[in-house]
Simulated assay, not measured.
Amino acid sequence: MSTIHIGVCGWGDQDELYKHGVANRDKLSVYASHFPIVELDSSFYAILPQRNYENWVRETPDRFGFIVKPHQAMTGHQRGEAVADRKELFRQFEESIQPLVKAGKLKTLLFQFPPWFDCTAEHVRYIQVCRRLMEKYPFAVEFRHQSWFAPRFRERTLDFLQQIDATHVLCDEPQVGSGSVPLVVAVTNPKLALVRFHGRNNAGWRDPGEGQKWRDVRYLYNYSKEELEAWVPHIRQIEGEVEEVCILFNNNSGGHAAANAKQFSEMLGLQPSGLNPRQMELF
């Protein structure tokens, strides 16, 4: 039986955890008294200085884990750059995360590719390049274009991820066109399975061209008890095939992620251990 960890995507906006006026500098410490893992999103927008990671290592307990999203240019979100132009960025990113690596707190790198990154030979080769450049580290892949799991490509995609020692990310998200992927309950790496709950806001999933306002709408969703219960058999299926399952809730816009994460943890009968003490909530 594998170990199951549940957390959310980012700790800064989880206001429901910080009801006693917690300062920004203390939020991660408080967060780590509730959950054993977190997804680091700020690394998607900038190459962060090592001191940031050093601080986060100090603020979290020994068994705490980070799922880290590489910079957006590394995953093709910034179109038009040649692969060669990105190699220095890969080097800088790798250097920046070393405090997590040395502390044993890097669960995996999460390469989330953009909605226009479809299933083509060119994109397969690019993933191979990413894997080669990051060969020292656990590596997870999340697709956002449904072509990767079209009937004629589904098994080939899973085989490919297995061949490059990558974790296939199971996604719960709206099914509203080519820029979304279906739920594919499968394991490609015996060490780690990764599940991400994005919400089911069908109307807000596509970008209407309003930038940040759209992002606030995209992840605005509160999972019902019935929707979460329907996921329990899927988790039971994959936990028998891997050493560890990490589950992340990304429905942050309305402040529902942490509550849904705790609700799902109870459904699975989890009792997280090794967390930070709760004293910070008193100040």
Rank of each mutant, 00 (worst) to 15 (best):
G21R: 14
G21E: 14
G21T: 10
G21S: 08
V22H: 12
V22G: 01
A23Y: 10
A23S: 13
A23W: 12
N24A: 15
N24H: 06
D26Q: 13
D26S: 13
S29F: 10
S29Y: 10
S29M: 12
V30S: 07
V30I: 14
Y31Q: 11
A32I: 08
A32N: 12
S33T: 08
S33V: 10
S33N: 12
H34D: 07
H34N: 10
P36S: 13
P36E: 14
I37H: 01
I37Q: 06
I37F: 08
V38Q: 07
V38R: 09
E39Q: 15
E39S: 13
E39A: 06
L40R: 00
L40G: 04
L40Y: 03
L40H: 08
L40D: 01
D41F: 01
D41Y: 00
D41H: 02
D41C: 01
S42Q: 12
S43F: 02
S43M: 10
F44E: 07
A46I: 05
L48F: 00
P49L: 06
P49M: 03
P49G: 03
Q50P: 02
R51S: 15
R51E: 13
R51G: 00
N52T: 14
Y53E: 00
E54D: 06
E54V: 09
E54F: 05
N55V: 02
N55A: 12
W56L: 07
V57C: 06
R58N: 13
R58H: 07
E59F: 05
E59A: 11
E59H: 09
E59R: 04
E59T: 09
T60P: 08
P61I: 05
P61Y: 09
D62I: 07
D62K: 15
R63T: 10
F64K: 11
G65F: 03
G65I: 01
F66C: 06
F66T: 04
F66G: 07
F66V: 04
I67G: 04
I67H: 05
I67C: 14
V68M: 06
V68Q: 01
K69H: 11
K69Y: 07
P70R: 00
H71K: 00
H71I: 02
Q72W: 04
Q72I: 02
A73E: 04
A73N: 02
A73P: 00
A73S: 13
M74R: 04
M74S: 06
T75P: 10
G76C: 04
G76Q: 05
G76K: 01
H77L: 02
H77N: 02
Q78V: 14
Q78N: 05
Q78H: 14
G80R: 08
E81A: 12
E81Q: 15
A82I: 00
A82Y: 02
V83T: 15
V83F: 11
A84T: 13
A84K: 10
D85C: 06
D85I: 05
R86E: 05
K87Q: 15
K87F: 15
E88Q: 11
E88C: 02
F90A: 14
F90Y: 15
F93I: 01
F93T: 08
F93W: 15
E94V: 09
E94I: 11
E94D: 12
E94P: 00
E95D: 14
I97Y: 08
Q98M: 09
Q98N: 07
Q98S: 08
Q98E: 15
Q98V: 08
P99A: 09
P99Q: 11
P99V: 07
L100D: 03
L100V: 02
L100A: 05
L100W: 03
L100T: 03
L100H: 08
